[in-house]
Computed example of a mutant assay.
Amino acid sequence: MLILSFIIILLFVLTLCFSLFTGNTMFSPLKLWNDFIQGQSNTTEYRIFMYSRLPRTMAAIAAGAALAVSGTLIQAVLNNALASPNIIGVSSGAGFFALLSASFFPMYPGLVPISAFWGALLTSMLIYLIAVKTGASRITLILSGVAISGILSAGIDLITILYPDDVIGATGFMVGSFSGITFSSLFPAVFLIGIGILFAFVFSYDLNILALGESTAASLGLRVSSLRLLVITVSALLSGAAVSFAGLLGFIGLIVPHICRALVGHDYRKLIFYAAAIGAIFAMLCDSLGKLLFAPFEVPVGIVLSFLGSPFFLFLLFAKKRGRIYE
């Protein structure tokens, strides 16, 4: 486990440097360091680093960690390895409410992350209510989420048509992108993400008990319904905060939990930590690839994630036996 942790830390540092110092304008860390030491804050390289590369990389770290942990929590509480914030419609709910806030209350940009959280929470609760009331199977639950996501996506399209001036940059929001992010728009969401990940660690032991089965967990004194409600709320907080600045990013919450389970097993005390770290690495890597693959043209990170995530989702469908979707 120490070796794995060392490898993850090394990969994080390498990916961080790759994200910070690659793009349309290439410059060396040594040149940037010399400018910083000499107080030359007006150089082109320094401005690009401070006002473009650094907030963009921080956004990738925050969104990747948040969506990966959110996906881990959703898969745990729904007992379904095909669940993730984008697939079951949680991200669409966050995006819909975020655009509503931007359209009707443009003078209060601080409402966007809060609105995204409530959108994610209400969507999560609706999906969970469907599962409870209908006794839906895991595949039916996924299909219900896809249907809800379709309705919310139609609502997002309607808002962008009716209020085009208030929803500037909606194309990037719909696809998912870290381009143009500033520190002022990032910090409120990062604060919420930090709280969400902290609570995820708090509930990790209870999630291990829940994994034993509902009846066993209840016999051990665990309040299953209360735990599910709390975990869904934390998951909504994470996905909503990420959507508020990164847009409708997909598949991080699906791919990363599977990678983590293959590496460290099913102990959520380890899973949540590694999901946050690998999610951040994965988001930074995909964003860097988007900057370099078709340079000087830039591909939004959401497109790169879709190219990687869609085949992975199909692989899960074909690899698992019907009715046994969870590992």
Rank of each mutant, 00 (worst) to 15 (best):
G250I: 10
I193M: 12
L308Y: 03
V301G: 02
A60E: 13
F294W: 06
L237R: 02
I195Y: 07
Y108Q: 12
T57M: 14
F18Y: 13
G194N: 07
I156E: 05
Q38S: 15
F203E: 06
V167M: 02
F105K: 05
I325E: 06
L230T: 04
V13C: 14
L32F: 02
F307L: 15
V69A: 02
A147Q: 01
L4Q: 13
S179M: 09
F49T: 00
Y274K: 10
I127E: 06
A63G: 08
S52E: 09
S179R: 06
P257W: 12
V77L: 07
L82K: 07
A200C: 07
A189S: 15
T160N: 14
A116P: 01
G253W: 07
L230M: 14
S177N: 11
G279R: 00
Y268Q: 14
A62L: 02
R223C: 00
M26K: 14
L227A: 11
G302R: 05
F104C: 10
G240Y: 04
A170L: 01
G196N: 08
A98R: 03
L73I: 03
V299G: 03
G155T: 09
R223H: 13
F297M: 13
G135V: 11
F273K: 08
A211M: 09
H266Q: 13
S226C: 06
S244H: 05
A189I: 09
S226V: 14
Y163T: 02
S239Y: 01
L222P: 09
A246E: 11
A242C: 10
I48E: 01
L198E: 00
I142E: 02
N42I: 00
A136F: 12
A63V: 11
E214N: 13
D165K: 12
